[in-house]
Amino acid sequence: MKFSGLSDFLINGKSVLAKGPVGLILVEDLVEVDTTLRHHLEHGFHALVVFAPPELTLPKDIDAKVHLVTMDVHQPGALLDAVNQVIAAAPGQWLYYCYNAEYLFFPFCEHRTIGEMLAFHTEERRDAMLTYVIDLYADDLDRFPNAVSLEHAQLDRSGYYALARPDPANQNHPKERQLNFHGGLRWRFEEHIPPKRRKIDRISLFRAKPGLVLRPDYTFNDEEYNTYSCKWHHNLTAAVCSFRTAKALKSNAGSTFDIHRFTWHNSVPFDWTSQQLLDLGLMEPGQWF
C-alpha cells in the first residue's frame, strides 16, 4: 500500500499500526533498500512501514508486503518526526526503527521471530531494548567506493567500550543503568565525526505509549527506556549491523579523500549470523536461551 505522505498514512493507514511489532525504515538513499526490507521481513515483523523519496521503486514481491510512505527524507529530523508521530498513533505497540543498509540481528534470530523475542522481553517487564549499531564496511574501497558490499562485509572484532552517562540534572553523576557505548568507525575515525554523534547505542526496539518522545541522540524522554537492563538481572540486547557510517565517511567531501581503507588488524569478515555477534560480545541473550 502506498501513501502520499506521513499525514496520509496516519489518517488512512492507521490500521497498519493495530498490531505489532511494526518496523519503521527510513530510506536515505537507494543503496541496498531491497536487501534491507527482505532482511526485516524474514524476521517476522507484522508490518514494515517504509519512509522513502518518490524515486524509490520496489520489486513486486516486496511492494506487496510493505507500506510505502513518500516523504522528504532529507528534511532535518525526518526520522525523529516520523517515529514520534507513529508513537503517538500506536500506543501499546512494539516498534523498531532503522535506516536502509542497516540490518537487525538479535540472539537466535535465525530460528526465532522478532515477535517471540519481544514476547519474552515483555514478560521480563521491559518496554525497550538496547541495540548496538555495529559498523559494517567493504574490504576494498577501490572495488566498492561507496564502502558497501554484503558479500565482502567486514566488522571490527574489538575496540568497543562504554563510558558512564552523566546526568546534568544531578551534578553530572552517572545515570543509573545507562552507559554511552563507543567503537567501530565512529571511534577509529572520530576526527571526522562530531562528538555528539560518536556513540553507537540506540534504543531501536521499544513499546509506544502516550507522551513518549524519541530524542536526537536516539534516547527517550522516559529514562527507564534508556537503561541496558532491569535492576534484578541482565536483559536481552540486539545489534543493528550498519553500513551507514561507512557510506557517510566515503560520501562526505571532508573525509573521503583522507580515508583509503577501513580494514585494520582487528577487521574480520561478517558471516551474517547472530552467533558471530554473540561470540564477539556485541549482543547478549540475557535469560533467553
Rank of each mutant, 00 (worst) to 15 (best):
N170Y: 14
N170S: 15
Q171R: 14
N172E: 15
N172K: 10
H173P: 02
H173F: 13
P174E: 04
P174I: 05
K175P: 02
K175I: 07
K175H: 09
E176N: 09
R177N: 11
R177D: 10
R177K: 12
R177V: 06
L179W: 04
L179D: 00
L179K: 08
L179T: 03
L179A: 05
N180Y: 13
F181T: 06
F181D: 00
H182C: 12
G183E: 04
G184L: 07
G184K: 05
L185V: 01
L185M: 02
R186P: 05
W187D: 15
W187M: 10
W187Y: 14
R188I: 02
R188Y: 11
R188F: 05
R188T: 09
R188A: 09
F189R: 06
F189V: 10
E190P: 00
E190N: 14
E190W: 11
E191R: 15
E191V: 12
H192W: 10
H192C: 08
H192D: 09
H192P: 05
H192T: 07
H192S: 11
I193H: 05
P194V: 11
K196N: 13
K196T: 14
R197Y: 11
R197K: 13
R197Q: 12
R198I: 04
R198Q: 14
R198T: 04
R198L: 06
K199M: 04
K199I: 00
K199F: 11
I200L: 05
I200F: 02
I200P: 04
D201R: 11
D201M: 08
I203Q: 03
I203D: 00
I203R: 02
I203C: 01
L205K: 01
L205R: 01
L205I: 02
L205P: 02
L205W: 02
F206M: 01
R207S: 03
R207H: 04
R207F: 03
A208W: 01
K209R: 14
P210Y: 05
P210L: 06
P210H: 12
P210Q: 10
G211P: 10
G211T: 08
G211V: 09
L212E: 02
L212D: 00
L212K: 00
V213I: 12
V213F: 03
V213S: 03
L214N: 02
R215C: 10
R215F: 00
P216D: 10
D217C: 06
Y218Q: 04
Y218T: 00
Y218L: 06
Y218W: 10
T219F: 00
T219H: 06
T219S: 11
N221S: 07
N221V: 03
N221Y: 04
N221G: 04
D222S: 08
D222E: 14
D222L: 09
D222R: 03
E223M: 11
E224S: 13
E224R: 12
Y225I: 04
Y225G: 07
Y225T: 06
N226M: 05
N226H: 06
T227N: 02
Y228G: 03
Y228M: 03
Y228D: 01
S229T: 10
S229K: 10
C230A: 15
K231F: 10
